[in-house]
């Protein structure tokens, strides 16, 4: 592979890592606050749809981002209501939210555009050219600082590690988790909008293609920490770009094997073969008081 090819491969790795970074940081907020987040896929899909539909009607990709954040937040609020208020099992609720997103999206396109498939193609002015890369970079910086250095960031960590201690200190665990979950939905929703208004020019069915789970994998591979998670996203972005590149040519390594690499790495990391990888202590447990 010559130098020019390598640079373009790295550039496309960076581009496809953008939705992963948004979704993984959303997942980080949720999981560090103690709520297992397997619904990232659903948030991404609904964000991709809301972003494309809004950009189509308004001609602005930025308004698309706003709408995607709102859509992701709404879906996350539904999940939060069931998980935090009714104390429904987090895995069951997450599964249902994903099903809901994948059922509602074709319903919306059918009602709006009379097709179960894609939204109309967006003109170039209604799409992003490079802004999302900078947004993702800014998000990484802000998240890393906020998570470690601010009171609210520490509250999120305590909600997932030692909720009793947080409650004793006078901060509401439930409120912290509510806010973390909704922020998670908004971030993942924005990530979704970059799929439809940045990486492609329309929403198409199932366009997330498992990226929500790859983002979750990146989060776990990154040991639930901001900077390692960023690198995991970039690495999984690289495998994705490589897989896209290899699809055209006859390569010795089958494309499918590169596609499953992120999942395989995550299993190996979870099994503790890459050093210690520990989930937040209170992950998956509901909290009854305050």
């Amino acid at each position: 592979m010559d130098q020019e090819n390598l640079i373009s491969l790295l550039m496309s790795s960076l581009r496809v890592a953008v939705p992963l970074i948004f979704a993984a940081y959303g997942g980080l907020l949720s999981e560090r606050s103690g709520v297992i987040q397997i619904a990232l896929e659903g948030f991404l899909l609904i964000g991709a749809l809301a972003g494309a539909v809004t950009a189509h009607y308004t001609g602005s990709a930025w308004l698309g981002v706003l709408a995607a954040a709102a859509a992701g937040l709404t879906l996350a609020a539904v999940k939060a209501f069931f998980v935090l208020k009714l104390k429904v099992d987090q895995i069951i609720a997450g599964t249902a939210i994903n099903l809901l997103a994948f059922g509602v999206a074709p319903f919306v396109t059918k009602v709006l555009f009379d097709s179960t498939g894609s939204t109309p193609s967006l003109p170039i002015e209604a799409r992003f050219s490079s802004a999302p890369i900078f947004m993702a970079a800014a998000l990484s910086l802000i998240m890393t600082y906020w998570f470690h250095k601010t009171r609210s960031g520490l509250s999120v960590q305590f909600a997932g590690e030692a909720p009793e201690a947080l409650a004793v200190a006078g901060t509401s665990v439930l409120k912290t988790r509510w806010l973390s979950l909704m922020a998670c939905g908004a971030l993942a929703g924005i990530g979704g909008s970059t799929l439809s208004t940045y990486l492609s020019s329309a929403y198409s069915p199932n366009m997330t293609g498992g990226r929500g789970f790859i983002a979750l994998a990146a989060l776990i591979f990154g040991r639930w920490k901001p900077i390692p998670t960023l690198f995991a996203c970039l690495f999984f972005g690289f495998t994705d770009a490589l897989q896209i590149r290899l699809q055209g040519i006859n390569s010795a390594i089958p494309v499918q094997f590169i596609q499953i690499l992120p999942y395989l790495f995550t299993v190996i990391a979870l099994a503790g073969f890459f050093g210690h990888s520990r989930a937040p202590k209170a992950l998956g447990q509901s909290f009854d008081r305050g």
């Binding site: 429904v88 599964t95 179960t116």
Partner: peptide, 25 residues
């Protein structure tokens, strides 16, 4: 006119949430 086969997913999702909700209350 407007309902597609994906409606099954909406049905499943809402039923899961409602059943799980009733068990929790």
């Amino acid at each position: 006119a407007t309902i597609t086969r994906d409606f099954a997913k909406i049905l499943q999702a809402i039923i899961i949430l409602a059943v799980a909700g009733f068990y929790s209350v």
